[in-house]
């Protein structure tokens, strides 16, 4: 039996089918979750995909955070359910207070789509065990509001506890503090990042790399060994 990984579709989710594909390619079973449905259908982990949920109106992720499915996810994530938030999903996680901080408009004031190099800083989370410490990977990045920020105390805490999971290399594409690309909660089950690992899972597609696949094999390994 393999792991069941839920992928939430909010109205305006765009990368939900891509996330399902990545889950499938890693060998797990993708399960579509609907924003209006509180039931998580016995999934073992959840991916909040990229996109513009609810049009990103009001503020990115601010409305999704109140959707019925998030009620259950917030509750279960506090109890240890592994959750990965990608891009808009990361924004939903900060709005839900499952992760600290917030995302501001990119420093350039433009949407940016590029192949981004990252360093994996924490390989102990549920979503990164298949990486090696300090591994440098390349995955697509695409956002208009991806500039991670938090108050200095929170940043110090994140850094001190090794909770900065990914850092931008070469270029900081949005002006985030300390080149932060993604973070984890203290327990390591909730991870959020702005770049898109689900777009780097096939050698032919996108930028032609598979550096993102280990996110999904990591969670599979964690769940199957659990």
């Amino acid at each position: 039996m393999t792991a069941r990984i839920g992928v939430v579709t909010f109205p305006g989710s765009l990368d939900d089918r891509d996330a399902q594909r990545a889950v499938r390619l890693a060998g797990a079973e993708p399960v579509a979750l609907w924003h209006r449905d509180k039931d998580l259908h016995q999934v073992d982990a959840v991916v909040l995909p990229g996109g513009f949920s609810y049009g990103d109106y009001l503020r990115c992720g601010a409305i999704s955070r109140f959707s019925p499915v998030m009620e259950t996810i917030i509750e279960q994530a506090r109890g240890g359910l592994p959750v990965l938030g990608i891009c808009n999903g990361f924004q939903v996680l900060t709005e839900s207070h499952l992760l600290p901080g917030a995302m501001l408009r990119n420093e350039s004031l433009h949407f940016v789509c590029r192949d981004q190099r990252l360093r994996v800083e924490n390989v102990d989370t549920a979503w990164t065990v298949d990486y090696t410490p300090g591994q440098e990977i390349s995955v697509p990045l695409k956002n208009g509001e991806g500039r991670f920020t938090a108050d200095p105390r929170t940043i110090d805490e994140l850094e001190a506890e090794g909770r900065v999971a990914f850092r931008y290399l070469d270029v900081n594409p949005n002006g985030s503090i300390n080149d932060i690309a993604g973070i984890t909660n203290a327990a390591g089950n909730v991870v959020g990042l702005m770049p898109h690992p689900e777009h780097a899972v096939e050698p032919l597609i996108g930028t032609g790399g598979t550096d993102g696949l280990a996110f999904f094999t990591s969670i599979l390994k964690r769940l199957v060994n659990a």
Binding site: D15, D18, E198, I205, G206
Partner: peptide, 13 residues
């Protein structure tokens, strides 16, 4: 062109 998403849907060759 970097202001446009060229990756979404995961089929861009």
């Amino acid at each position: 062109t970097s202001q446009y998403d060229r990756f979404v849907l995961g089929n861009t060759v």
